[in-house]
Simulated scan of single mutants.
Amino acid sequence: MTTESQIVFYEDRNFQGRSYECKGDTSDLHSFFSRCNSARVKGGFWVLYERPNYMGYQYILAPGEFPDYHHWIGFNDCVRSCRLVRHVTGHLKLKLFERPNFDGQTWEVTDSTPSIQERFLCKEVHSCKVHEGPCVFFQHANYHGRQYLLEKGEYRRHTEWGAMHPTVGSIRQISTDLPAAGKQFNWPNKYFLDSASPHTGVFRIRLYERPDFQGQIMECSEDWPHLYDRFRHREVQSCNVLGGAWVFFEHPNYRGRQYLLERGEYRRFSDWNAMNPTVGSIRLVQEL
């Protein structure tokens, strides 16, 4: 029997608060809920978008339960549009190209690849042809960082799959081979949450609205030149550096006083030696 495609969004964590049941593509979810902190995928594979009209950060969800947005590797509680992933065949065949417009060296992928660099000795993919799919490109190795859904078709440049740069660290196949009822689907969410290590090359930091890791949370894995555009707050009262080293800047665009934060917990802004909690921009430290 075919399972009906369906996802239920909840405003609060652990499936609490106002909910909305969705059965198809929706370009603007704002009228149904103001925030999304948990979700249940009852059937099908779904792409959640941070902004309306299928724009912004993408999160691909398989059937299962997600008690908070960190379980789908979310950067915040903002979900403004969603669509169903169609034509999931359980097979993968794609060709990666070194340059735009299908030029340069090529590599063929037929299964999930946790490290593109180790397998093909490259860090960038500038164009791609998906012959069988769909699949997910991840910004970093081991299925970390930003996600981009690629369905069957041709992509002449990285911007056509929604990326701002051509870096591809890993590729994950979307498979129809679900586990037995009651078991968690084998998707990399738990691995992502539990595996941040200073030796993996993964940069990850969690910012909090209030001291002692309270209030609204924002998670980041890349440079942010203007924190207010993402966080909607000008103050960071506490933070947890889960991977890598970071620099906080007092003003946007990496200006003003600087504060270096290495892996660890910072319960209040004075722990990183700041005189006030104002943070205008943050930048990761590539080498330390």
Rank of each mutant, 00 (worst) to 15 (best):
186 N>W: 00
186 N>T: 05
186 N>H: 03
187 W>P: 00
188 P>G: 08
188 P>Y: 02
189 N>H: 11
190 K>Y: 12
191 Y>K: 10
192 F>L: 00
192 F>S: 03
193 L>N: 15
194 D>A: 08
194 D>M: 10
194 D>N: 12
197 S>L: 08
197 S>I: 01
197 S>T: 14
198 P>Y: 05
199 H>K: 12
200 T>M: 03
200 T>W: 00
200 T>Y: 04
200 T>Q: 07
201 G>R: 10
201 G>W: 12
202 V>M: 09
203 F>R: 10
204 R>T: 01
204 R>Q: 13
204 R>Y: 12
204 R>K: 15
204 R>S: 08
204 R>P: 00
205 I>N: 01
205 I>S: 03
205 I>C: 07
206 R>G: 03
206 R>W: 01
207 L>T: 09
207 L>N: 11
207 L>F: 15
209 E>P: 01
209 E>K: 07
209 E>R: 08
209 E>H: 13
209 E>Q: 15
210 R>M: 14
212 D>T: 07
212 D>L: 13
212 D>E: 12
214 Q>F: 10
214 Q>M: 13
214 Q>E: 14
215 G>D: 07
215 G>P: 07
215 G>L: 10
216 Q>M: 12
216 Q>C: 08
216 Q>S: 14
216 Q>Y: 14
217 I>G: 00
217 I>R: 14
218 M>E: 09
218 M>T: 13
218 M>D: 03
219 E>N: 12
219 E>W: 01
222 E>F: 11
222 E>H: 15
223 D>G: 05
223 D>L: 01
224 W>D: 13
224 W>E: 13
224 W>H: 04
225 P>A: 06
225 P>F: 06
225 P>D: 10
226 H>T: 06
227 L>W: 02
228 Y>C: 02
229 D>R: 10
229 D>Q: 10
230 R>M: 08
230 R>E: 04
231 F>A: 12
231 F>P: 00
231 F>Q: 03
232 R>V: 03
232 R>W: 13
232 R>F: 15
233 H>Q: 14
234 R>M: 02
236 V>D: 06
236 V>W: 07
236 V>C: 09
237 Q>R: 08
238 S>Y: 04
238 S>D: 07
239 C>H: 08
239 C>D: 02
240 N>R: 13
240 N>M: 12
241 V>S: 09
242 L>S: 06
243 G>N: 02
243 G>E: 02
243 G>C: 03
243 G>L: 00
245 A>Q: 12
245 A>I: 05
245 A>H: 07
246 W>N: 05
247 V>D: 06
